[in-house]
Nucleic acid binder design. Structure first.
Lengths: 255, 255
DNA sequence: GAGTGGTCTAGACCACGTA
DNA sequence: ACGTGGTCTAGACCACTCG
């Protein structure tokens, strides 16, 4: 029990009241009261009402659809399984390919792919254990569902390892997966290290993924090692929180 | 190349300018220019300046420390390894205990623990495959480092399974780990399913973890199954993005 | 006391979609 | 044409910390 708040501000009361009504399911489908009408009910100015509403926007609870009004956000995230593939169902032992699983669900999957050769950015360079200025081949992808982007996927490979591969270097889907190609080139991966950070998107990410206010992203960095512990692949994914849930299955190792 | 923006608003220009200067490292340690001085330089009102600054707050880039001014946020997240334990170093094969690893780093680790018996909340009930109203034992923990909370950890067990265990039911640390106790009771876990969602914290989480504006959280749900595929443990963790990075190591399963 | 950010007022004009 | 939210102005008073 906190010792009696120091009189919350008016906009806090407004956002608290609205949050309670939203969580009670009051505005499903219908817009929230307009700014003007809230200003009237709370006998305050529009600016104060807007401050209260903006709290709820930043929490990811509502959005403004001008000039229709404010609406409650609803989300139906897809399941992302970094061990396996994608799907919409709870965990199962299946491991299917991305496009197959998506169309199965009646949604139209598509992607854009760009391939280029660039000096390894610092984050990648460190993980691929390259020298400053060493080149990498990058496959940059945006994956979409029904036209909406839901994930960016940038895969980096040491250029020396893959420059002979038409598959890796061409901006087209690789049905059997890039990892199969790498294995064929003699770089079969064993262990993959997964790193995760979650934060608010920067303007570039906001634009690339068309991200709504109040939506954080997770940045996933995968580093793939061969059995000889040589890093051969570094993937940077950006996953918006309103469109993706992640699921893993892990064998218990500690007592 | 987007087709020439439709004249960005003034506050957008302010936040863009400041973001550029911040990323160039201009304000490390020193405060940003005050609202009043920004209003003067941009020949605008304080309110517009505040709108620009609030953009940067929501992105998690800066914070206001009244009445000293606005400062750039810096973060040094700790490494969370859900397979193993905690640490501050990049991935390694070590698997140590929480308190041991933390004190090793010269930071003071502590925690608060509350134990109670409650009807399983819906999320837990579904994962533990319980009927409505069935009881669970909950161990609710807040873990702190140097007095700052960095993780909440709520572990639920079917009450029938653990009611005989003094260790599980007492609000004290279990040095050998609760999983060892469960194993001793005949409920050794094999597979654990990990679920992850990231979003902005709700007010309760904000208060419990003392979360700063612009900081998202990841909600981690772990469900532990015995070899006979009986769920015996459901853990809900709340991980603030400014204090935690997560690292996993996964054996490659797909080609 | 001076300067900081936090809250709030009472207006104004605009762009946009819907009716 | 109307109502919506988006931007912006020019003030005001307050609580707090620091010198």
């Amino acid at each position: 029990m906190p010792p009696s708040q120091p009189s919350p501000s008016l906009y806090t009361r407004i956002s608290n009241d609205l949050r309670k009504r939203i969580n009670a399911g009051e505005f499903s489908g219908a817009p929230l009261p307009s700014e003007a009408s809230l200003a009237a009910t709370y006998k305050t100015s529009r600016i104060t009402v807007r401050k209260g509403l903006s709290e709820l926007i930043q929490e990811g609870l509502i959005y403004a659809d001008r000039p229709r009004g404010y609406f409650v956000r609803r989300r139906s995230p897809m399941i992302y399984r970094p061990q396996h593939g994608f799907g919409k169902q709870p965990p199962s032992p299946a491991l299917d390919r991305f496009l197959a699983e998506m169309t199965e669900l009646g949604r139209e999957a598509s992607q854009t792919i760009e391939v280029s050769v660039v000096p390894a950015p610092p984050i990648v360079r460190q993980r691929l254990e390259l020298e400053e200025g060493e080149l990498t081949a990058v496959r940059r992808r945006i994956r979409l569902l029904d036209g909406q982007p839901y994930l960016t996927n940038d895969s980096y490979y040491p250029y020396g390892l893959v420059k002979g591969s038409d598959e890796i270097m061409s901006p087209a889907d690789i049905p059997r997966g890039a990892n199969a190609v790498l294995a064929e080139l003699g770089h079969q991966q064993g262990l993959t290290v997964h790193e995760y950070e979650w934060r608010m998107p920067n303007p570039a990410e906001k634009a690339r993924l068309d991200i709504t206010p109040g939506t954080p992203v997770t940045e996933e960095i995968l580093t793939g090692y061969t059995a000889a512990e040589v890093p051969v692949r570094c993937v940077i994914n950006c996953l918006p929180g309103d469109r993706i849930k992640m699921v893993l299955e892990i064998e218990h190792t500690r007592t």
